[in-house]
């Protein structure tokens, strides 16, 4: 399998008043397609920034980022939005879902943006909700779901359009360990069954235990890059 994410010399800093705070410095990183990888590091290390850059949510100050062969710097805002819509799925730490839509509608919404016909949308949304084990909860609103269930809906939404890559920003941070493990199981299954690449940012040991590759980020630099043996099957 080829490379799906390629970062070369990526730097990013933020302005905080008069201060310029460096967040990432000269990051070089390649992620193989089909990977199940964690960006680890303490809070403020820059892992979320890197994840956002890979997701095209933010612009790098310098360096190039390619996802699926497309270089971000060359894309317009609209093209980036389309890229996120079709090629990338997101799972955030919390408040992932649109509160006024039911679980089913939340999943459908991505396909609505893609312009999938209503009937097809509903069919696929039901299907993927069943995959994440929420077939009975399709019509509940986010407020009527537990934190774990909400995250499962988020995973369902992230994978429903068969993206090449899912970016998950501390997906288990707000969950108890049992629920968190369930969610990780689910994502691992999606990874192995559907070949979707997963990149997490996390400081949760359990996530790291599941990950096949752990990239340690410290002070905006890659401090360590650990490939577990199981990665190359």
């Amino acid at each position: 399998m080829g490379t799906i994410v390629e970062c070369n010399g990526v730097s990013k800093s933020y302005r905080q008043g008069k201060l310029v705070v460096p967040a990432l410095a000269e990051i070089d990183l390649c992620v193989e397609a089909g990977g199940f990888m964690a960006l680890a590091g303490p809070s403020g290390s820059g892992k979320t920034t890197l994840l956002n850059l890979i997701g095209g949510l933010d612009d790098a100050d310098s360096g190039t980022i390619r996802v699926d062969g497309r270089e971000y710097a060359r894309q317009s805002k609209a093209q980036l939005a389309d890229l996120r819509l079709h090629r990338i799925g997101f799972v955030f730490q919390a408040y992932n879902l649109i509160p006024v839509l039911s679980a089913l509608e939340n999943v459908e919404y991505v396909m609505l943006l893609q312009g999938v016909a209503a009937r097809e949308r509903r069919r696929r949304a039901r299907e993927v909700l069943a995959v994440v084990g929420l077939e009975g909860m399709a019509h509940r609103r986010p407020a009527e779901l537990s934190g774990g269930q909400q995250q499962r809906v988020a995973v369902a939404r992230a994978i429903v359009s068969n993206p090449s890559i899912v970016l998950a920003d501390e997906p288990t941070a707000n969950l108890d360990s049992k629920t968190g493990e369930g969610l990780l199981h689910l994502m691992q299954r999606m990874n192995s069954d559907r070949g979707v690449t997963f990149i997490f940012s996390t400081h949760d040991e359990m996530v790291m235990a599941y990950a096949r590759r752990i990239v340690q980020i410290r002070d905006g630099r890659i401090a360590d890059d650990l490939h577990k043996a199981s990665e190359h099957r």
């Binding site: 609209a78 939005a81 996120r84 819509l85 997101f90 408040y95 649109i98 509160p99 991505v110």
Partner: peptide
């Protein structure tokens, strides 16, 4: 704002 951020992240265009 956060909700809009999620929607933008999953690929909704600002016009929407």
């Amino acid at each position: 704002t956060h909700e809009f951020g999620v929607m933008l992240a999953i690929g909704a265009r600002p016009a929407r």
